[in-house]
Simulated scan of single mutants.
Amino acid sequence: MKIGEIFKDGLTYPSNNWKNVLILGVFTIIANIVLIIPAIGIALNSIGFTGIVLTIVSIISLIINLIIMGYSFSIIKNTVNNIDTIPEFDIGNNIVNGIKILLITIAYYIIPAIITILVAIGTGAFNNLAQLIISGGVVSNELASSLVVSFFTVMIVGIILLIIVTLIATIGIARFAEKGNMGAAFEFGEIFKTIKEIGWGNYIVWYVLLVIILFIIGFIMGMINLIPVIGIIVSLLIINPILVMFTARATGLIYNEKNS
């Protein structure tokens, strides 16, 4: 399957089951609404109320996001197993898989995060930021130059690590979906073998185009969100779920290119 066909399939895939798109959208709306509730406590100037509610809504938001992550994983799983139908929701199973994906994601990104922090310390980014705060925003030429160099270095290192780890983690999660065990997500020899079978060129082009498509749709969502109430509802209820399904489907399809 050509890369263009992968994205075409991914974008049309959600239309096969609008019911599940809307269910996923409702979960997305709830996850966003509960995050607004603590603001009520702040407005009422009630610290106790805010603390209790924040704890509750954080738990609710986490559970819902685990469901969304788990459901996205089920789409990848169906796809890598050559099942073209959109999976139904299985809340219990979705939560369990969501937890697994969360753990895999943490395991993948914790080392790059630590490296980025160490680079920030080594380049003096934190120290420069502290000096900026202490000076009350008064920046000397020397401090300004040091800030630019340190933060630019940290940004470049962070972006490079993010891209590399994401490329590996994406195939790792797809391998987990195919093999059924979390260990498969960390079999780096097999992961690099799979990427080689897909073709590094094809995989990188797919990744770049995926980012561009998500950026464009995200920009459109931003414009729609400018429409009071209705725009936000449309974005959360329809566009965001389509993006989740599209990304998961496209991930499964690029993974299957190893068999081509």
Rank of each mutant, 00 (worst) to 15 (best):
residue 45 N to M: 12
residue 28 T to D: 07
residue 81 N to L: 15
residue 88 E to V: 03
residue 188 F to Q: 07
residue 152 F to Y: 08
residue 190 E to R: 15
residue 46 S to K: 11
residue 226 L to D: 05
residue 138 V to H: 12
residue 133 I to D: 00
residue 20 N to Q: 09
residue 255 Y to M: 07
residue 45 N to H: 13
residue 50 T to Y: 02
residue 145 S to E: 10
residue 243 L to A: 11
residue 52 I to W: 05
residue 179 K to Q: 11
residue 224 I to H: 04
residue 181 N to E: 15
residue 110 I to V: 15
residue 204 I to V: 15
residue 167 L to Y: 12
residue 121 I to W: 13
residue 177 A to W: 01
residue 249 R to V: 13
residue 106 I to D: 10
residue 252 G to V: 02
residue 108 Y to Q: 02
residue 41 G to R: 05
residue 104 I to C: 04
residue 108 Y to H: 04
residue 59 I to M: 08
residue 138 V to F: 12
residue 79 T to Y: 01
residue 6 I to D: 00
residue 133 I to L: 12
residue 2 K to W: 06
residue 205 V to I: 15
residue 127 N to W: 13
residue 255 Y to L: 06
residue 75 I to Q: 10
residue 160 I to D: 04
residue 144 A to F: 13
residue 108 Y to M: 08
residue 80 V to L: 12
residue 56 I to K: 03
residue 78 N to V: 03
residue 22 L to A: 12
residue 196 K to H: 13
residue 152 F to A: 14
residue 256 N to P: 03
residue 58 S to Y: 10
residue 4 G to M: 09
residue 225 N to E: 15
residue 119 V to E: 06
residue 30 I to S: 00
residue 124 G to C: 11
residue 81 N to I: 06
residue 35 L to E: 14
residue 99 I to D: 04
residue 208 V to K: 07
residue 256 N to M: 10
residue 187 E to Q: 10
residue 52 I to P: 00
residue 183 G to C: 03
residue 24 L to D: 09
residue 25 G to F: 03
residue 196 K to S: 14
residue 110 I to A: 11
residue 24 L to N: 05
residue 163 I to P: 01
residue 185 A to K: 00
residue 200 W to V: 01
residue 16 N to C: 03
residue 179 K to A: 11
residue 35 L to Y: 10
residue 207 Y to C: 03
residue 136 G to F: 12
residue 255 Y to H: 07
residue 113 A to W: 03
residue 60 I to G: 02
residue 226 L to Y: 05
residue 31 A to F: 06
residue 220 I to T: 04
residue 77 K to H: 11
residue 121 I to N: 11
residue 236 L to P: 02
residue 119 V to F: 09
residue 27 F to D: 01
residue 145 S to R: 09
residue 123 T to A: 12
residue 232 I to R: 12
residue 127 N to V: 14
residue 91 I to K: 10
residue 14 P to H: 07
residue 136 G to I: 02
residue 206 W to P: 03
residue 93 N to V: 00
residue 92 G to K: 14
residue 222 G to V: 15
residue 114 I to Q: 04
residue 157 V to M: 01
residue 246 F to G: 04
residue 1 M to H: 13
residue 215 F to A: 15
residue 231 G to N: 01
residue 236 L to F: 05
residue 69 M to K: 13
residue 149 V to A: 14
residue 103 L to K: 06
residue 203 Y to N: 05
residue 124 G to D: 09
residue 89 F to W: 03
residue 257 E to V: 06
residue 221 M to T: 14
residue 65 N to D: 09
residue 249 R to D: 08
residue 144 A to W: 10
residue 48 G to A: 08
residue 229 V to E: 04
residue 227 I to H: 02
residue 26 V to D: 02
